[in-house]
Design a binder for these strands. Sequence first.
DNA 1: CGGCGACAACTTGTATACCAGTATGCTTGT
DNA 2: ACAAGCATACTGGTATACAAGTTGTCGCCG
Lengths: 234, 234
Amino acid sequence: MAEPLRFVRPIAASTSSEVFEHLRALIVRGEWLPGRRVSENEVARSLGLSRTPVREAFIRLRQEGLIQVYPQSGTVVSPIDLGEVEDCQFLRETLECRTVALAAERCTARDAADLKRLIERQLECCAPGREAEFVAADDEMHRRLVAISGRTAIWRVVRDAKAQLDRVRHLSLENPAWIERNVNEHRRIIARVVAHDAGGATQAMRKHLRNVFQSIERISREHGEFFQQVSAGP
Amino acid sequence: MAEPLRFVRPIAASTSSEVFEHLRALIVRGEWLPGRRVSENEVARSLGLSRTPVREAFIRLRQEGLIQVYPQSGTVVSPIDLGEVEDCQFLRETLECRTVALAAERCTARDAADLKRLIERQLECCAPGREAEFVAADDEMHRRLVAISGRTAIWRVVRDAKAQLDRVRHLSLENPAWIERNVNEHRRIIARVVAHDAGGATQAMRKHLRNVFQSIERISREHGEFFQQVSAGP
DNA sequence: CGGCGACAACTTGTATACCAGTATGCTTGT
DNA sequence: ACAAGCATACTGGTATACAAGTTGTCGCCG
């Protein structure tokens, strides 16, 4: 038998994983709008693959709540559930406010330099047409703050919640000034973290997340067509 | 084309989902110990199925971090990563302490009755050999508290974190008195929730979760063989 | 005796074929 | 004209076949 598994492994990305990342990005960036009908066959054809890797990607997307599969009938990009969006905001605020406080306590000089570099990168994205880059940098900064806090496993959860929120954000092409305001808020957070001011960092983070959520709520009101009412189970 | 999807849907559980639930339970309950080698073929044979539904279950297990897949080589039940366990505890404490406070504010008379019934059920499980029932009732109570808080989407996250923690718990057949102590702590939490005492509920929950974590830490020290050191990557 | 190499037996990844259920739209009977 | 029903083309779920990679065994050769 081929028993042991002592892999120091590189772990090549499989086709299936690539498809998953690709489709996930399409959904989060709003290129596949909520409610859109999709099918394994169609995607497989368009990518020149068999159904298998596409199907495996679908399974993961379903588990993350990004699509809804109705056997023998069809699959749709999940409509946005306002209650779930609010829960995601609650989750983010709860977790990131605590991790950013930890990050403030543990932040080293090297971390501080990294964070400042990330802010620079965000500033460069304050040009029209570079929103996608900013979103990536935004993700990276939040991820980095969680990493500095030492609770690395938390990121996975925050990332999934953030995806749901970003999905709403992408329903609307926002005012370009939006990026600048975000960078400023990020700067305030980083300043408190670098200064080892846990309380200040928490407040800055909370304010930032609430501002983001405010625009999400506005967008929700403007795009009711993508939302679904949902059972308020017992 | 078969377009609309107006499914009021029953959504029959697929074989694949049943396999997933089954394997997940095996891992969480410690019947499949950390580090154990498993293979899609072997499971498929033993369940009298083809590889397909088993493989799909594996994909979901991997996504939840319960197994590690090494392509062309093999699959193992995830060794326990102490850092990740600590993160799960952090996550649970952070989230459940907040949701239980919300639950205290929102708890209705009907909710209170349900909670008391759940406590009764737990009391009945204070007999030897009924640990499994207690664990189920424990899960149900924590789930219910989150539900009462109104942040239903949070449960998914808490559940996954709890699974990692329960996995460690099941490494050791604990002293039966353990159940009784847990029920008492649950009772204290419920009492504060029913009394609409958000602060008290938070404190009771925190104390409960920390006690649970204490035994997890003890078990960790006693069963180093199932643990792995992990890279603290940047 | 020790190291190296081909082979065999396994692993997971991908492609294909078939099954059962569902929505569409046309046909057919009234 | 209209309604019932059936054919059809789609859906996702499952089974099977093949491809590609890894590992341990075993035998050969130095």
